[in-house]
Amino acid sequence: MKKWISFPHRAGRHSRQAHVDLPDGTYEREMGKEGFFGPAAHFYHTHIPTGWSDFQGPLRPHAFDTNLLSEFGGSPWDAEQLLGNAHLRLRIWKTDRDMDHLVRNADGDDLLFVHHGQGDLYCDFGHLAYEAGDYIVIPRGCMWRLAPAQKTELLMVEATGSHYQLPDKGLVGPHAIFDPAMLDIPALDDAFETQRSDNENWRVVVKARQQLSTITYPFNPLDAVGWKGDLSVVRVNVRDIRPLMSHRYHLPPSAHTTFVAGRFVVCTFAPRPIESDPGALKVPFYHNNDDYDEVIFYHRGNFFSRDNIEEGMITYHPFGFTHGPHPKAFEAGKKAALKETDEIAVMIDSRDALDIGAAAERVENNDYVNSWKPKD
């Protein structure tokens, strides 16, 4: 058990409650430990904490437009890594044709988020239809392939060497955010039976230690006639996620955690009412998340805390970088111009620094760092 050095104290002009009733003319900045779970201090500044006039060096924030990516190949293993480290690998894969082979990841669990498209997934456990907004968790070692009915675009998040689990939901109980009963599993249905074949060669491309091996069978190895146990591919759609809300207090991103893995978490920002209490912040608070790198994939809607960020883009804020809403969003929040959000976004908080891949560098908006500068 951790024993933090803890001495709650107050000095000068400050709010009695974090994120509520800020002193007139001030901007709140949170500095904390362990993301949003450890001890924290709140500072009240007379200038916006992100109001820099110049920003030099590798710490700067990044924005990548994945809509500009074009070369993908016929296999998810063809997708180039955008961001990654020893525990996490993030890719975008786009495809419009049936896979002519199976894949199996021996390095870790895969999380597929369907940004566009619909179709069918076939795997060891059976057949599962998919559509935009689906999260699909594929356990390590499972064989699978896609048969798109529409052009499909996936955000792929590999938990290298670890496994996806559900978060501890604490006081709100296990059925909050989404009930585990909402998790769908594949079926051994007619579609699965139809895809079986005994008289043709099937390749299984296995990724292990980030290297590929091909195993060929004289039959389709997706030929299970039954299975049992408590391990499976599972699916949940963002429409079934019911975010935690407080009309009097802006909750931290950790309240929206959807999955946890070794050394990172995956959170979902889903539509919700905006805080209605007159004194509560209406936008994310400025903060230094000094222990985690933050990545957000923007799926749908109007991203109320960002300016000039579109669907299909990714932002990356490395740890140690003070960040928060863009100036235009902050001013709109103060005026309570919006009553609810309509955004859907996937956030990944990584406990270890992420490396930027060559594919991400090709589609980076290098002017993103200047988007926090005060407008003249």
Score class of each variant (00 low, 15 high):
residue 127 H to E: 04
residue 127 H to P: 07
residue 127 H to K: 09
residue 128 L to Q: 11
residue 129 A to M: 05
residue 129 A to D: 14
residue 130 Y to Q: 10
residue 131 E to L: 02
residue 131 E to Q: 14
residue 131 E to Y: 00
residue 132 A to T: 14
residue 132 A to V: 07
residue 134 D to C: 10
residue 134 D to K: 03
residue 137 V to A: 14
residue 137 V to Y: 01
residue 137 V to M: 09
residue 137 V to W: 05
residue 137 V to L: 11
residue 138 I to Y: 02
residue 140 R to D: 03
residue 140 R to N: 13
residue 140 R to S: 13
residue 141 G to T: 08
residue 141 G to N: 03
residue 141 G to I: 00
residue 141 G to V: 05
residue 141 G to A: 10
residue 142 C to P: 00
residue 142 C to A: 12
residue 142 C to E: 09
residue 143 M to P: 01
residue 144 W to Y: 15
residue 144 W to H: 14
residue 145 R to P: 02
residue 145 R to E: 00
residue 146 L to H: 07
residue 148 P to F: 04
residue 148 P to R: 03
residue 149 A to W: 02
residue 149 A to V: 03
residue 149 A to N: 05
residue 150 Q to E: 15
residue 150 Q to R: 09
residue 150 Q to A: 06
residue 150 Q to W: 00
residue 151 K to Q: 15
residue 151 K to S: 13
residue 153 E to L: 04
residue 154 L to R: 00
residue 154 L to E: 04
residue 155 L to Q: 04
residue 156 M to T: 12
residue 157 V to E: 03
residue 157 V to P: 05
residue 157 V to R: 02
residue 157 V to D: 01
residue 157 V to M: 13
residue 157 V to T: 15
residue 159 A to L: 01
residue 160 T to G: 00
residue 161 G to V: 05
residue 162 S to F: 02
residue 164 Y to R: 07
residue 165 Q to C: 11
residue 165 Q to T: 13
residue 165 Q to I: 07
residue 165 Q to W: 01
